[in-house]
């Protein structure tokens, strides 16, 4: 059971590393958008520092959304999603493997780059560990929820913009709890409550999302 999921993850990672250029794109997007904020708002250190928790997290949502579009696209085109569906193993677990691989490919680079972005946006240094923790807990939720939307839309032309329309409202709770946690850390307040809410959201998404993704893919294939 577990070994099958691991095989799916391994396959997707292998495919991703064969096209390393694509790997960098979401990260580049992430950094470039973050650079736009000081240019558009103000380079003032204190002002930016106040906005930084929200800016980093809005950018994270957008980067996660953009990376979601491609999660099932290739498998739809070459028919491997049907092969997964026909295999004797539970479809939702296989699909979970695909989402896990996608998070390893897109979420982990974000974890690496986000301290740098925090510095660019003048986020006070004491808040960076908390920011890192919210990214660690939050981005898997974004991947799981976004994968439901991607599963529903990637079988159709014009699905890309639709994906944003469907998924962004569902990202609202993650945005609220994550950026509040970082803001609280900036002010030196307790953050464990916010992180606990994110953790609870992650567990909920881990339990429910694979089934929703599986059911959505079934509909898109038919």
């Amino acid at each position: 059971m577990l070994s099958v999921v691991l095989t799916v993850i391994q396959r997707d990672l292998l495919l991703a590393f064969r096209r390393r250029a694509d790997l960098m794109n979401p990260v580049l997007f992430y950094v470039i958008v973050a650079t736009l904020f000081p240019l558009g708002v103000s380079p003032d250190v204190e002002f930016l520092g106040r906005l930084a928790p929200g800016l980093v997290w809005v950018t994270t949502l957008l980067a996660a959304l953009i990376s979601m579009e491609s999660i099932f696209r290739q498998d739809f085109d070459d028919g491997s999603i049907e092969q997964l569906f026909l295999s004797p193993h539970p479809f939702s677990m296989l699909v979970f493997g695909k989402v896990a691989a996608h998070w390893l490919i897109t979420g982990v680079p974000m974890l690496v780059i986000v301290p740098l972005m925090a510095l660019l946006l003048h986020l006070p240094v004491q808040a960076i560990p908390v920011l890192w923790a919210t990214i660690l807990l939050g981005t898997p939720i974004l991947s799981l929820v976004g994968a439901i939307g991607a599963a529903l839309t990637s079988g159709f032309r014009g699905g890309g913009i639709l994906l944003g329309l469907l998924v962004l409202p569902l990202y609202v709770p993650v945005l609220i709890f994550a950026s509040s946690a970082v803001s609280a850390a900036v002010d030196g307040l307790a953050v464990s409550g916010h992180l606990a809410m994110l953790g609870a959201g992650l567990i909920l998404a881990l339990v429910l999302a694979p089934f929703a993704i599986g059911a959505s893919l079934k509909i898109s294939m038919s």
Binding site: I148, L166, P169, L170, V172, P173, I176, L208, I219, S220
Partner: peptide, 25 residues
């Protein structure tokens, strides 16, 4: 018919999420 089923799934996901969204807001 496909559109109808996709919309149905979204409606159900939405109804699970509305309390969470409302609470967080």
């Amino acid at each position: 018919r496909t559109a109808g089923r996709v919309a149905s799934i979204l409606a159900i996901i939405g109804i699970i999420n509305i309390p969470i969204i409302h609470y967080s807001v």
